[in-house]
C-alpha cells in the first residue's frame, strides 16, 4: 500500500512539474516584458514603451501601494518579465524583496527611476512621492527610457522619440502649474499625508500633512491638536483629501476647523474604471490644479 501511494505521489508530482515547466516556458518572445512597480511608474513606462514593449503594473489598480501584499501569482508573473522598473526612494521596500528572489537577480534587469534625483529626507526616511512633481517626473521618464533602451537596444530610437514627447507633455504641465500657482493668496497646503514634498518644492507651497509619509501612519492626539491650531493660526481655508487612503483623520480636522474639504489625487493608483475610461496621470494632475486653485485662492487673472 505505501508503495502504491509513493508511486502515485511521484506520478502526481511529475505531472505538476510537467505542467508548470510548460507554463514557465518562454512565451512568444517578440516583445520586451516590463514590470512597473505601481501606477505612476507604469504610466511613464507605458508612455515611453508605446507598442514596442508590454508594460504591466505589479500593484493592481485601485490598491494602495503602501499596503500591497504580493501573492505567489505576482511572483510568477514577474519571472516572465525582462525588466523591473521601480520608483525607488524606498517606495517598494516593504514588498519587493518578497517578489524578486536572489536566483532571479542575474536575468531580471532592475531599474530605479529615482536615480540621480535629489531626494527629500524627512525624519530619517526618503520621501518617495517624486512623480507628483512634473519637473522631477521628467527625470524619472529619462531614467526609465535609459533602462528600456538598455534592455532592448534595437528599440532605442523609438524609446527616445516617445520619451521626448512624454517629457514635453510633462514640461507643459509643469509650466501650467507654475503659472497658475504663482498668484495664490494661501501657501499652506493642508493634506492627509506627507505626499506633496517635491510638489511644493517646485511651486512654492508649504506642506502641512496630517499623517506621515506612509499611509499607515496615524497621528497622535497632540499632533491632531497641533494641526488644528496651525490651520487656525495660518488661516488655512481648505483641507485636501487623498483618494485610496484612510480619510478619518482628515475628517476629524475638517470637522474641528470647518475647513472646506477638497480632493487631491496623489496618484498612488487609479481605479480600474478610470483606466478603462483613459483617465490617468495628466487628467488627474489637471484636476489637482483646479482643486488647488480653489483651496489656495489663486487668481491667474490679476
Amino acid at each position: 500500500m505505501p508503495k502504491t501511494l509513493a508511486a502515485f505521489a511521484l506520478a502526481f508530482s511529475l505531472l505538476i512539474y510537467g505542467c508548470s515547466s510548460q507554463a514557465q516556458g518562454e512565451p512568444q518572445k517578440s516583445r520586451l516584458v516590463v514590470a512597473a512597480s505601481f501606477y505612476p511608474i507604469y504610466e511613464f513606462a507605458k508612455g515611453i514603451a508605446g507598442e514596442r514593449a508590454h508594460v504591466y503594473s505589479i500593484v493592481p489598480f485601485g490598491v494602495e501601494p503602501h499596503e500591497f501584499e504580493p501573492s505567489p501569482s505576482d511572483a510568477k508573473r514577474l519571472r516572465q518579465a525582462d525588466l523591473l522598473v521601480l520608483n525607488g526612494a524606498g517606495m517598494e521596500l516593504a514588498w519587493i524583496g518578497k517578489l524578486a528572489p536572489e536566483d532571479q537577480k542575474g536575468r531580471l534587469r532592475i531599474a530605479d527611476a529615482s536615480e540621480g534625483i535629489p531626494l527629500i529626507i524627512s525624519q530619517g526616511s526618503a520621501d518617495p512621492h517624486i512623480w507628483l512633481s512634473p519637473k522631477l517626473a521628467q527625470m524619472q521618464v529619462e531614467n526609465i527610457k535609459e533602462a528600456l533602451a538598455q534592455a532592448d537596444p534595437e528599440g532605442r530610437e523609438q524609446y527616445e522619440k516617445n520619451a521626448g514627447e512624454y517629457r514635453r507633455r510633462l514640461a507643459k504641465l509643469d509650466a501650467k502649474f507654475r503659472q497658475a500657482l504663482s498668484a495664490c493668496k494661501k501657501r499652506d497646503l493642508l493634506i492627509t499625508h506627507a505626499t506633496v514634498g517635491y510638489f511644493c518644492q517646485d511651486y512654492g507651497c508649504n506642506p502641512v500633512p496630517i499623517s506621515g509619509l506612509s499611509h499607515a501612519d496615524e497621528p497622535s492626539a497632540s499632533k491632531l491638536a497641533e494641526i488644528v491650531e496651525l490651520a487656525r493660526q495660518k488661516n488655512i481655508s481648505a483641507i485636501y483629501f487623498e483618494s485610496l487612503s484612510d480619510q478619518r483623520f482628515a475628517e476629524v480636522v475638517s470637522k474641528e476647523t470647518g475647513l472646506k474639504p477638497l480632493s487631491f489625487n496623489s496618484l498612488h493608483g487609479i481605479s480600474p474604471e478610470d483606466e478603462a475610461k483613459g483617465r490617468g496621470y495628466f487628467e488627474f494632475m489637471e484636476e489637482n490644479l483646479e482643486s488647488l486653485k480653489e483651496g489656495l485662492e489663486c487668481d491667474e487673472g490679476s
Partner: peptide, 23 residues
C-alpha cells in the same frame, strides 16, 4: 481582502478603529 484586489484602506478602520476619529 486579497481576492478583491484590495480595500485595505477601508478595512483598517474597522480593525484598528481609532478613538481619535470617532464620528
Amino acid at each position: 481582502a486579497s481576492a478583491s484586489g484590495g480595500f485595505g484602506a477601508d478595512l483598517m478602520p474597522y480593525l484598528f478603529g481609532s478613538i481619535l476619529a470617532i464620528s
